[in-house]
Simulated assay, not measured.
Amino acid sequence: MTILVTGGLGYIGSHTVVELLNEGFDVVIVDDLSNSEKFILNNIEEVAGRKPVFYPFDLKRRDLLKQLLDAHQIDGCINFAAFKAVGESQEKPVDYYENNLFSLINLLQEFKERNISNFIFSSSCTVYGQADEMPIDENTPLKTPESSYGKTKQMGEEILMDFAKAHHKKISLLRYFNPIGAHPSAKLGELPIGIPNNLIPYVTQTAAGIREKLSVWGDDYPTPDGTAIRDYIYVVDLAKAHVAALKKLMSETSDTVIDIYNLGTGKGSSVLEVVNAFEAANNVKVPYQICDRRAGDITVAYANADKAERELGWKADTSLEEALRTTWNWQKYLESRN
């Protein structure tokens, strides 16, 4: 079985490629390297013992996608290819709509023409907006997301559901919460280009002295310590969920399947709780400053992931502290390469 992984050299994509290879799948990666670097491909081979096929192009180039699909018999796709920074999406909304939706539509057009099914979409808890109740399960009503990034994920889900119904395809929408951590080998992890947009890379770069201070966006939220609360899930746990979802799709006898799963730990942690846990886990200090709230951010979000455990046999079981230890090891690895 050969799986196309778009954005496969990115953060979650690279970890998922390793898990696919470990499970015996062959993998073809498409990645334009806008959120990664080429050395990740070699590191995947070091970790998994096998090297995936790699194509460096932008999925908005449908002509190049056609050439790839002519050359390989693809049995399914896991689509990670997307711009992903909430704050940046508020500043560059048109770029986000163009990149995240045009690439998805090109994939679906080709899958329709070639009669390929088994499509997994990298979605996000942002499709729920600020939910009225916690924890968030799959029946929680969707709201218009606060950010353009979140809107592209919600639109992507709607496109895929219409696609599955009209063309009898099997799809899985994976709504994940906040991925953190790095591979235990310290050879794969989150690789921010420029100034990090996500919390954990900024924490590690601040602890390493690359950044002077961590910016904590708001301390006036209605939470115990005033900072926003998220559900932080270890990236390797998350990668394994993609493989479980893929296996389920491939085992389905119906020609039309729409699976939706929340992927999280079921526990919320505030920004300051994460900072304190990182300091305790790694015996380092993280200087920080309180800043105004960031546009597009919500107050609190954490998952009910019981459905994934029930139907996929999957559960996130890595502690916050262990995940934060791996991310510090990854930061030290990056420094050793320089």
Rank of each mutant, 00 (worst) to 15 (best):
A228G: 13
F54Y: 15
D225E: 01
P184G: 05
A280R: 12
L65P: 09
E190R: 14
G266K: 07
G296K: 10
S103R: 03
L320A: 04
R175T: 06
W217Y: 15
H72M: 06
E212H: 04
T223I: 06
P179Y: 03
K267H: 12
D58M: 11
V274I: 15
A244M: 01
G313A: 01
D31T: 10
V274M: 11
L33H: 04
V286K: 08
I233A: 10
N262A: 07
P52S: 10
G296A: 07
S254D: 15
T6R: 06
S103V: 10
G10A: 03
K285T: 15
K248W: 00
E335S: 12
A280K: 15
I180C: 06
D306G: 04
A208G: 11
L174V: 13
R62K: 15
K66M: 10
I210R: 09
Q109W: 08
H168T: 07
D95N: 11
K307A: 07
L101D: 02
V47E: 06
N35Q: 14
F39K: 13
L334N: 07
N43S: 09
V28M: 04
Y221D: 11
V257Y: 00
H15S: 04
G266D: 03
S148G: 02
A71W: 00
T206K: 01
P222Y: 07
G209E: 02
L9C: 07
V271H: 03
P184V: 05
R50E: 12
K315N: 05
N118Q: 01
I3Y: 01
C125R: 04
A208I: 01
L191Q: 13
N43P: 02
E279V: 10
K247F: 01
L272W: 10
K84F: 12
I74E: 03
Q90H: 12
A280Q: 15
F80S: 09
T327G: 01
P222C: 08
K332N: 12
L104C: 03
K315Q: 08
G181N: 02
D255P: 13
K38D: 06
S172W: 04
D137Q: 06
E252D: 05
I233W: 01
N304R: 08
S336I: 07
Y149M: 06
D225Q: 06
F177R: 07
L188S: 09
A81G: 05
M1K: 07
S124M: 08
K66R: 13
A166H: 12
S124E: 08
I233G: 00
K165H: 08
E322C: 02
Y97V: 13
T318Q: 03
L272M: 15
D132G: 13
A280F: 12
I105R: 07
S14I: 01
D220I: 02
F80I: 09
K247D: 03
Q154N: 09
F102H: 12
R50L: 12
D292G: 15
N304C: 11
S123T: 10
E91F: 13
Q331N: 04
N115K: 14
S251F: 00
V216D: 04
S319V: 08
V300Q: 14
N198S: 12
E23M: 09
V203R: 00
A277Y: 10
A166E: 14
R114D: 03
M1C: 00
R50G: 01
T6V: 02
W314I: 07
